[in-house]
Design a protein around this nucleic acid. Structure first.
Lengths: 216, 216
DNA sequence: AACGTACGTTACTTGCGGTAACTACAGTCT
DNA sequence: AGACTGTAGTTACCGCAAGTAACGTACGTT
């Protein structure tokens, strides 16, 4: 009975298929933005809907698989920027710039990841489950950055907790500023990067009140 | 011909009706979260769908009207915190705390505002329209905070531009950290507020590298 | 009395997520 | 060889929500 070798072959074939499907989905998302429908994706892959559902369960599953690919890729780029041999501030700037360059290069994918039209919340749960399914990309980035900060920066007591908070906060800052910048393009990328780094570097605390104003 | 007085009466009646509809929508959103359907909202208001469409055009219109109400209310609370007679840091902490208390008190509304299941993007525009319809609440908060910073803080040349960037960045930080905190509840609200204020106050720049690590 | 207009309804279309039931073909067991 | 099992694939359907068309009705204007 050669079941094991056979099973192995079939499993790897299934994985190849899965990658093909993901690439097709990617193309459609690139083309249609976040309104990409399961039908359209299946058509692009040359098959029909039920197969997608066999592979990914539901739309949320396909979304998660797609998101994981892009998030992994983005995350490795960010890690590289964060690990470059340079001063802390330069590395922070490089990381911001890497993120912004990425969302600038593939806005459709970015939009799909950030604003999934729907998520997997079939139960009309009435409780406080807010955000459980919300943008996993941001969550993951925040969590990862929190870890990095916790292991590299000395924040004294309560280190880990504060590092997580900062991770999510910094990622959120980057995201919101990037989202706004991408749609309005009010300045160059470099300028945006510099301003955000300045913010993180405490210029808000150092800046004086404006003459005549009530202060801030 | 008494058309003007008549028209006036009818207009004000329509506005009253509109407010009633918005309040009904509010109740449904409170109850059902972001999955509230137009049918459900109409039923709650004691009427049927087409009337909603006559008043608000489409779901996006209803969403915008609802969002405006809550955003206005939140914004005035935030302004109050920002205008209190105290030192800058205390005011920033009060503002953060006000925001977090608001999302903590009404998570369903918050979720509806932040994660609208869909928006009004009928055109299959393929260009770079990313984020044009994305979370208006955050945009508006960022824009307002940017104005406040620009008029109160002295940032030297490029004041206005940098103030806008900071406005969106700070709002994004607050939002992402709040979203994460609301779902995981890893610490008290006060602690979160303190940590975020510390971040804004430049503790990232001041902190030393951790012993043994590659620095940050 | 006839008319326009705003309010309201029922009943429909369209489109999407998701599923059930069936077909075709590979390799395996007796 | 021929029955057995499982997997990729199909068509055809369900349920549901957004949005619309056509129709009815009350009321102030002329």
């Amino acid at each position: 009975m050669e079941t094991t070798r056979q099973a192995e072959r079939q499993r790897s074939a299934a994985e190849r298929r899965r990658r093909e499907l993901l690439e097709a989905a990617d193309r459609v998302v690139l083309r249609d933005g976040p309104k990409a429908s399961m039908n359209a994706i299946a058509a692009e892959a040359g098959i029909t809907k039920p197969i997608l559902y066999r592979h990914f369960g539901d739309k949320g599953g396909l979304y998660r698989a797609l998101a994981k690919r892009h998030t992994d890729s983005l995350l490795s780029a960010l890690r590289a920027a964060l690990d470059a041999p340079a001063q802390r501030r330069e590395r922070v700037e490089a990381t911001l710039d890497t993120y912004l360059a990425a969302i600038e290069a593939r806005p459709q994918v970015y939009r799909f990841l950030m604003h999934p039209s729907d998520d997997a919340a079939p139960a009309p749960e009435q409780g406080f489950d807010v955000g459980r399914h919300s943008a996993p990309l941001l969550r993951r980035l925040g969590e990862e950055l929190g870890k990095v900060i916790a292991e590299r920066v000395d924040l004294g007591p309560g280190n880990e907790q504060m590092a997580r908070i900062w991770g999510h906060g910094i990622v959120g800052m980057m995201h919101a500023a990037g989202d706004w910048w991408l749609s309005d393009r009010p300045c160059s990328r470099a300028q945006l990067v510099r301003s955000l780094a300045d913010l993180l570097w405490g210029r808000l605390a150092e800046a004086g009140d404006r003459p005549g104003g009530p202060g801030f």
